[in-house]
Amino acid sequence: MRRPLHCWPLVCLIACSGPDAPDAAVCRDVVVRLCQSAAAYSCVAVQLDLGLSCEATLLQRTGCEDDAFAFTAPTRERVLECREVLLSRGMSTDHPPACADATRFLTGCPDVAGFFRGSQP
């Protein structure tokens, strides 16, 4: 893992970052955020064609339950860019996004939405 030396030590006073999270972790973070709350789930369930088991369906559909998972299309950078709207309430997954943010995630990034819908790019 690469250590983020560029922010050490002063930035650590407030918000220092750790190493890069693997693609699988980033993917699972998005899945958790979309499925964690009923509000977000209700907004994305139809568009993502989800069943009753939101997390299990998305993890299986994207393949990111495997720790060796890596983004190809869309790329990691694209997923991270689209994920930003889901972070409006904080970095931690303890703070799930609102319905509006989840909707903007899907409508603003159709390619990423397609990835989570299971359709081929």
Binding site: P9, A21, A25, M91, T93
Partner: peptide
């Protein structure tokens, strides 16, 4: 150990407790 409960906008884990303690100590 990095804080794996949070991933920032750039896709990085949160800082480890040791890094945070070092930063505050230096500050």
């Amino acid at each position: 150990t990095p804080n794996r409960s949070a991933i920032d906008e750039q896709g990085r884990y949160g800082a480890s407790s040791r890094d945070v303690a070092t930063g505050w100590g230096l500050g």
